[in-house]
């Protein structure tokens, strides 16, 4: 089959469309998360989304509608636990993440009917994305990008030098919260694409690849988005023609870009 026929499939079109949005928000937020040493919050929140999706399936509610508020709540909880309870941020992520998985497993064992559905979310499948999910991805991605656009300099300053940012009147606690909430939305969208197990890679890879090459923050953001977009589109295409799981292929292409950028930096 040639590439033109391939592009005529509506499920491919939907995957390209939703995948592009998710790729760009992942790379945009991922850049801030990586630079703030908060990369693994994506991993923790994806585990929570596993539990939340299980709850949705258990109650017979559309999983995304359950997952988005619960994962947002979990992101706030991670921040609060690390602020108030004398627990380091990474330990707080560990706690919340484990509760998410444990909850999911218990719910799955209580209702035998939906195991296949639930385990589908472990590795995602963007080729089976529904119209509603495409719409949801587009709307939420626009929201995330708009918030980043309007808070760009606050995010920049708070990430570069949090203490100094405070002395210029930036409410850094609020910016941290914003970052966590946007990550929560992004993670839920990305779970559909690459699955619970691989979400954090989608947040981390484009950022670390861009950081090898970039010579300024704006260029880093642009390179990151470009790498993420290319990885998703190539990943979907290659996985279709060679019958390989899509999420895993997207991550492998991201890995390839990272290795190339690293080698380029060494040589140049």
């Amino acid at each position: 089959m040639d590439i033109l026929h391939f592009l005529q499939y509506s499920f491919i079109q939907k995957a390209f469309f939703a995948g592009s949005f998710v790729a760009i928000i992942c790379s945009t937020l991922g850049m801030f998360l990586v630079l703030r040493k908060m990369s693994l919050i994506g991993d923790g929140l994806s585990h929570v989304s596993f539990g939340a999706i299980a709850l949705g399936l258990f109650l017979g509610i559309y999983p995304f509608y359950v997952a988005i508020p619960i994962v947002m709540l979990a992101s706030v909880l991670i921040l609060k636990i690390s602020e108030k309870a004398k627990v380091y941020g990474d330990a707080a992520i560990g706690i919340v993440s484990a509760v998410g998985i444990a909850g999911g497993v218990i719910l799955a064992s209580m209702s035998r009917g939906f195991n296949t559905d639930l385990f589908g979310y472990l590795f995602g499948n963007i080729l089976s994305i529904s119209d509603t999910e495409v719409m949801l991805s587009a709307i939420l991605s626009f929201t995330v990008l708009a918030v980043v656009y309007f808070f760009y300099w606050d995010l920049f300053s708070a990430t570069f030098d949090e203490e100094y940012a405070k002395t210029t009147g930036i409410k850094t606690e609020f910016i941290n919260m914003l970052c966590a909430l946007l990550t929560a939305i992004t993670v839920v969208l990305a779970v559909k694409m690459v699955g619970v197990m691989l979400v954090s890679a989608l947040l981390i890879f484009p950022a670390v690849t861009a950081l090898q090459l970039a010579r300024g923050f704006r260029t880093a953001m642009i390179i990151g988005s470009f790498v993420a977009l290319l990885s998703v589109l190539l990943g979907i295409t290659v996985s279709f023609f060679f019958n390989i799981p899509t999420g895993a292929m997207i991550i492998m292409i991201n890995t390839l870009f990272f290795i190339l950028s690293f080698l380029y930096k060494k040589i140049a």
């Binding site: 920049f156 990430t159 570069f160 949090e162 203490e163 210029t168 010579r215 300024g216 260029t219 880093a220």
Partner: peptide
């Protein structure tokens, strides 16, 4: 307190002031 991995250019840093 500065994040040295951050790829900020000089003018970007000064702008935060």
């Amino acid at each position: 307190t500065i994040n040295m991995l951050f790829p900020a250019t000089v003018d970007e840093v000064v702008m935060t002031g």
